[in-house]
Design a protein around this nucleic acid. Structure first.
Length: 338
DNA sequence: AAAGTCTTCAACCGCCGGCGA
DNA sequence: CTCGCCGGCGGTTGAAGACTT
């Protein structure tokens, strides 16, 4: 048996934004009598509103203990950490933030924090890194395969990464990068992956050339990258989450042409968590931002612009070793200061 | 300057659980 | 136990303002 709406149109009750006069009536009444029964309050207070609307207006806007204005950095940190534990339990989160309402926190999450996490490559539902959000595929594939790519800085670093610069060894086995490129570029198009024999063969070849041991050695780089991108050390790292690879991959390879497919699938699933995860409560993936010393808004903005990179900035730094080391120093600085 | 697009956030809606009759 | 009332919650909407073209 459904309940009738609390304020039907036929009652002539007003909806929409509150006027200052209505606000004053509500404030005056509650100051004098308390709110008591919300359903009868509007009649007693002389308001053409339903009780629910009055309650909402009071609790979300007129209450004297409401803190207005921008969220402080500490508040934002608290929201992110609590959300990583509790999920969308806005009222529970609000209970830990004096003067903030669940509605305000929910709005702030949806309009600011959520977007920022996405930009950082963090899944706002699970609080785990999602490298696909960073669009690494474009970073990698454009440098490797597009010789006319305009970003010479990035291309130079990539070529050094792959071939060395005449004085040093390649930083990463080019086959690893090729495989990574394939993985990243194809995880964005899952439908194209499993039915394409050419691509499967590509993974097989790549995996054969790299071998289990070297692929494993590449994983810490991914972990560092995931951390490096946004100064957010993850309790659950890419490496920790990786399924165990067979010690003798040649044997498996001889059995089937699609032997790599399950590993690719597992590997890809580590790198990209489904955004529609039904279980936001994941205490093992609590997100930390090492920046709690930023107190003023200026510091906060400065922190974000200096230390939390946008995707395009990551493209500049991602495989630039000097930049990486420099960035690690900055990170260590913030860790110490914290 | 104007039109179109995007962002924000106050307010609404439907649902749920607690509680008393 | 069932029913209806109520407060509370989380998802969603849409008007207004900000921004872009």
């Amino acid at each position: 048996m459904g309940r009738s709406p609390c304020c039907e149109k036929k009652n002539g009750l007003k909806k929409g934004p509150w006027t200052p006069e209505e606000d004053q009536k509500l404030i005056d009444y509650i100051n004098k009598h308390g709110y008591g029964n919300w359903r009868t309050l509007p009649k007693n207070a002389g308001l053409q509103r339903c009780g629910k609307s009055c309650r909402l207006r009071w609790t979300n806007y007129l209450r004297p203990d409401i803190k207005r204005g921008r969220f402080s950095f500490e508040e934002e940190e608290t929201i992110i950490q609590l959300h990583s534990i509790m999920g969308n339990k806005w009222s529970a989160i609000a209970a830990r933030l004096p003067g903030r309402t669940d509605n305000e926190i929910k709005n702030y999450w949806n309009t600011h924090i959520r977007k920022r996490l996405l930009k950082m490559g963090i899944d706002p539902v699970t609080h785990t890194p999602r490298l696909d959000l960073l669009d690494i595929s474009s970073i990698l594939s454009s440098s490797i395969y597009n010789s006319t790519y305009h970003h010479h800085h990035q291309q130079m670093n990539m070529s050094r990464l792959m071939m060395g610069d005449g004085h040093q060894q390649p930083l990463v086995n080019p086959e690893i990068l090729k495989l990574a490129t394939s993985l990243f570029s194809n995880q964005n198009h899952p439908n194209n992956t499993h039915d394409n024999q050419t691509e499967v063969n590509q993974y097989q070849t790549g995996y054969n050339m790299i071998g289990n041991q070297e692929l494993q050695s590449w994983l810490p780089i991914m972990d560092q990258f995931a951390e490096f991108q946004d100064l957010m050390p993850m309790k659950t790292t890419v490496q920790d989450s990786l399924p165990s690879f067979p010690s003798n991959h040649e044997d498996d390879y001889s059995k089937s042409n699609s032997v790599l497919e399950p590993y690719y699938s597992d590997f890809a699933s580590v790198l990209t968590t489904p955004s529609s995860s039904p279980t936001p409560l994941n205490s093992s993936s609590t997100t930390y931002i090492n920046s709690s010393t930023c107190s003023t808004e200026d510091e906060k903005e400065s922190y974000y612009s200096n230390n939390v990179m946008s995707t395009s900035e990551i493209a500049d730094y991602s495989f630039d070793v000097n930049g990486f080391l420099q960035f690690q120093e900055t990170k260590n600085h913030w860790d110490r200061v914290m």
